[in-house]
Structure formats: structure tokens, C-alpha cells
């Protein structure tokens, strides 16, 4: 989590100096009326208007860098238009170890993002195929997992079981929410238990790794999918690169822990570009049509 923060801070300062005027942090949400506002690519530092980023699904038109996107944008580009119906929007965590400043920080994050915590999810369809979709939103506490994420994950999984729906999760997380102490670690066991229950129900669980998915999220529900896809260039791993570097005392090879590396090491099924994601998900769902005959999301 720390290295992720450092990395983001560094990139932020890099391109702030590159475009000193009013370049925005790349993962910021597009606001209406400022489509011409310019945003620099975090990877190649080339600058494009917000409109162009949006049109290109927030993938750099020049180098193909997949910019982190919010849960709302993810649902918008993945699900059929107008099909998303959010569930459990109000699950909020507390302050289980009474960590100084934590309630204020979560309060601010809620205000800034409009989310109750980092897991965002609900019902929707992909090419008319009903799914229960969830996204860990990295704009909220870097998608880290605390009690709110764990609790909401269980609620969503139980909803998927009850409605007999495939479960689709876009993972993106810095790991455990450290401000919640051991409570955050226990969410790994909780979310894994939820997937255990889901497996027993015979449901299809799809995971899409997005950049980055590390720590406690990587080592729990994110690595338990029946089918695991990843966006190009996503960092996926348990230990972060900085910790590994410190431990082994040498530089890590180029591309270490990135999607291509994980594909080569047998950890994921397929790398899928953002523009192709909906199509591939739709294909996977159709290939499991026999499991879901007669399912309907309507209540």
C-alpha cells in the first residue's frame, strides 16, 4: 500500500510539473462541461482532452496505458446501458480500533467520492445476460479492504446466490485497510468464506484484475475466481514490489508481477484490453448459459 501511495504521489508530481497549469490527477472523474480539459497519461505523459480519454475508455490513445477508473465508470462501460441497479449503497464501516483521524479520513473520502466505502456493486446485464457485478473502487482509500468491504461483499455474494446470478468482480486494491487493525485481516477469511458458500451454490465467479490488486485482496476473494481475467499492465501480487525489493536486496525484473507475468506464471486465464472486456465477459457468460437457464434479475 505504501509503495502504491508513493508511486501515485511521484507520478502526480511528475506530471504536475509536466503540465503545471491545471492538469488533473489522472484517475479523477470527468465532470460535465470540462471535456476539453487536458489530462496527462501517467505512463507516457502525453496529454489528451478529457473527452478523448472518455471516448477511449480511459485508455491512453498513445501508449495503451489503462488508467484506473471509478466504479461508476466501470459499470458504465461494462454493463448494458441503464441496466445497473446499485445494491447496499449504505454499508459503512466504523472505527473498530479507534484509530486517530480515521473517521475523519473516511468521512472526507465519502464526501469526495459519494461512496460509502470502496466496494460498489449491484445488479445489471451484459448483452442482456443478468449478473451481479461489484467493483473495488480505488478512488476510495485505494480500494483497501476493511469491515465495510467484507460485510458488503458477503451481502452481494448472498444476493447472487439467492437470485442465481453469476458474480463478476473487478478487483483493484492496495490491500488491507490498516487503520482497522486485525479487523481488516479478518476480512480475508470472511470474503473467502463467502466465495466458499458461492462455490457450493454452483455459481460462476468471474474476476477481473485491474491495476493494482495486491495484499489482502489479492490473497483472498480476488484469487478465487472460476475464471480470472486481467487488464493489460495490471500489477497483481501478494507482496508489493517495494517489500520484495527490500527483502531480496536487488532490483526486480521489468514487468514483474504485471498481467503478462501472471499469465506466463499460470495465475490468470487471459489478458483482455478494456475495449474488449465487455465482449469477452459476454462470451464467458454465454458459455455458461446452461448453468443459468431461466434466470431473471427482475423481482
Amino acid at each position: 500500500m505504501a509503495e502504491l501511495f508513493e508511486e501515485r504521489k511521484k507520478t502526480f508530481f511528475n506530471f504536475r510539473s509536466f503540465r503545471r497549469e491545471k492538469a488533473k490527477k489522472a484517475e479523477g472523474l470527468p465532470k460535465p462541461g470540462d471535456e476539453k480539459e487536458e489530462v496527462a497519461c501517467k505512463a507516457c505523459h502525453k496529454v489528451f482532452g478529457r473527452g478523448e480519454w472518455k471516448e477511449n475508455l480511459y485508455v491512453c490513445p498513445s501508449c495503451g496505458f489503462h488508467m484506473p477508473i471509478s466504479g461508476k465508470i466501470r459499470m458504465g462501460i461494462t454493463l448494458d446501458e441503464g441496466s445497473f441497479q446499485e445494491l447496499y449503497p449504505d454499508v459503512k464501516g466504523g472505527d473498530p480500533i479507534h484509530f486517530p483521524g480515521y473517521p475523519e479520513k473516511t468521512g472526507k473520502a465519502r464526501e469526495k467520492t459519494g461512496l460509502s466505502d470502496s466496494l460498489y456493486g449491484g445488479l445489471g446485464t451484459i448483452d442482456s445476460f443478468p449478473v451481479l457485478a461489484a467493483v473495488l473502487d480505488s478512488t476510495f482509500f485505494m480500494g483497501s479492504m476493511g469491515e465495510a468491504v467484507g460485510d458488503k461483499f458477503v451481502l452481494l455474494v448472498e444476493e447472487a446466490i439467492k437470485r442465481h446470478l453469476p458474480l463478476l468482480v473487478f478487483a483493484s486494491s492496495g490491500g488491507a485497510r490498516m487503520q482497522e487493525g486485525l479487523f481488516s485481516l479478518m476480512q480475508m477469511a470472511k470474503t473467502a468464506a463467502a466465495i466458499g458458500k458461492f462455490r457450493e451454490s454452483g455459481g460462476l465467479y468471474l474476476v477481473v484484475f485491474t491495476n493494482p490488486t495486491t495484499g489482502g485482496v489479492s490473497a483472498s476473494f480476488a484469487s478465487l475466481g472460476d475464471i480470472a481475467l486481467a487488464e493489460p499492465g495490471a500489477l497483481i501480487g501478494f507482496a508489493g514490489p517495494r517489500v520484495i525489493r527490500q527483502t531480496i536486496g536487488e532490483e526486480l525484473p521489468e514487468g514483474f508481477q504485471r498481467s503478462q507475468f501472471q499469465l506466463e506464471h499460470g495465475q490468470i486465464d487471459k489478458i483482455v484490453e478494456r475495449k474488449d472486456m465487455k465482449g469477452v465477459l459476454s462470451q464467458v457468460l454465454r458459455l455458461h448459459g446452461n448453468v443459468y437457464e431461466g434466470t431473471d434479475t427482475k423481482e
Partner: peptide, 14 residues
């Protein structure tokens, strides 16, 4: 990491 640390932990938990 190359041999699936995350998956090994996750499967144990489950």
C-alpha cells in the same frame, strides 16, 4: 510471487 502466493493463501482461507 511467481508460484502463486496469493492463490495459495486464498485457497487455504476458503
Amino acid at each position: 510471487e511467481s508460484n502463486g502466493q496469493s492463490t495459495a493463501i486464498a485457497e487455504n482461507l476458503l
